[in-house]
Amino acid sequence: MKRVLVTGGAGFLGSHLCDRMLREGYSVIAMDNLITGDLRNIEHLFKEKDFEFYHHDVSKFVHVPGPLDYILHFASPASPIDYLKMPIQTLKVGSLGTHNLLGLARVKKARILVASTSEVYGDPLVHPQTEDYWGNVNPIGPRGVYDEAKRFQEAITMAYHTFHGLETRIVRIFNTYGPRMRLDDGRVLPAFIGQALRGQDLTVFGDGSQTRAFCYVDDLVDGIYRLLMSDYPYPVNIGNPDEITIQEFGEEILKLTGADQKLIHKPLPKDDPKQRKPDITKAKEILGWEPKVSRSEGLKLTYEFFKERVKTEKAQETE
């Protein structure tokens, strides 16, 4: 049985990747230091004989006994609230952590896929964003700790590929949503749903004309799996090109939740991207992939998850 290491394995995306790799017949090791991950995301896997959990920070030396066939590097704070609160850890996991895992992949002769992000494009001057666009990033702005960590991560991954001949894959992930997101992680979708569930008005930053394109987690995980199994070493955008303004998205959430609150506006944070939409031509041509889950369908599933989680947390508070 082939073995795969998933770093950030207790996180939102990492935990879904653990599920997928187990379903595909792999032995899975999830590694996480739990600064943003949550053991509740993987507690259903502890009974599986082919699943292990290592509580470890990949910014420190990484040791995994025995053979290893694949590494999925998804360890990193990924929301603005997290990486603004933990700027040094964010830079370290993108640099030292990636270096450690590339070294591990080389020793184990494993293929490694690293999770990059659409944030490497910064506040883009090209729309939609294609993989050959170099981006418009402020390296010393508040978001620079995340953007530049991911840009460095791509650079060192390609260096290991070209210099050492290491089998590498790079996925550029666009806005993704689904069950197991944290309500408090600061990203627009959980923020909107969290405010709706708490009876608060929904906060729209700026005038709401900035755009995002949301991909349901199952679609994203399928794209990542196809990229891992492909022979393509260069970055590939994985996301849903169905673009919507934040104002329109807030209205969709109010309609979905049946909340009678309103949208309120606050100043746009510094360097916040005005447009975000993936060009997925490469994913279609190379991987035969495109998203299947509509936003209305995915939002219903995500809202049900959040409703249950809030209900459980309230019940625990009253015990």
Rank of each mutant, 00 (worst) to 15 (best):
V236I: 13
V62G: 05
D272V: 09
G239T: 13
R309T: 13
K60D: 13
L197F: 00
L96D: 13
Y146A: 00
P291E: 05
C215E: 06
Y234A: 11
G258W: 14
Q200F: 14
R20N: 03
E285D: 09
H164G: 00
F305N: 01
T90W: 11
A105R: 06
I280H: 04
V145M: 02
L113T: 09
V126I: 11
G144Q: 01
E290G: 05
D207R: 11
G178T: 03
F174W: 06
P77T: 00
R172F: 01
P269I: 11
L301K: 13
E243Y: 11
F51E: 04
E167F: 05
F12K: 03
E43Y: 09
R295W: 03
H16Y: 08
H73E: 02
K266P: 04
Q153D: 12
Y216G: 08
G223M: 06
Q210Y: 13
S76V: 06
P190W: 01
E308A: 14
E319D: 15
N175V: 08
T281Q: 14
P267V: 00
E131H: 10
K274V: 02
F205Q: 07
Y26R: 04
S209N: 10
P128F: 08
R3M: 04
R187E: 06
Y70G: 07
H161M: 06
R276I: 15
G9D: 02
I170F: 00
P179N: 11
A30M: 05
Y234V: 01
M158S: 13
H56E: 07
L189M: 12
S116D: 01
V28G: 05
L202F: 10
I173W: 02
T168P: 02
G66S: 04
K85M: 11
D32H: 07
V114F: 01
Y70S: 07
E48N: 15
P77I: 05
T312C: 14
D271V: 09
V145S: 10
R172A: 08
Q210N: 13
E317C: 11
E317I: 07
L68T: 10
L228P: 04
R276E: 15
G239M: 01
E248I: 08
T203Y: 06
R23Q: 14
G144L: 02
D82S: 14
G250L: 02
T168V: 15
P278L: 12
S79F: 07
A259P: 01
R182D: 10
N175E: 13
V4S: 06
P269V: 13
L101M: 10
Y70E: 08
Y54Q: 09
T168D: 04
G206I: 09
E154Q: 09
G14K: 09
P267Y: 01
L45R: 07
S15M: 02
G165V: 05
N138L: 05
Y177I: 02
D184F: 13
R180D: 07
P267L: 03
P267S: 00
V171G: 04
N33M: 08
I112C: 04
A105H: 06
I81A: 10
V293W: 14
R212W: 03
K2R: 15
E167R: 07
G11W: 05
N136P: 13
R20M: 07
N240R: 02
S296M: 12
L68A: 03
F61I: 14
H265G: 12
Q316P: 08
P235L: 15
N136V: 11
N237K: 04
P124S: 00
F61D: 10
E248R: 07
L17D: 02
Q261A: 10
E167G: 09
D57F: 02
S118M: 12
Y54G: 00
A110H: 01
K2T: 12
A259H: 09
W134P: 11
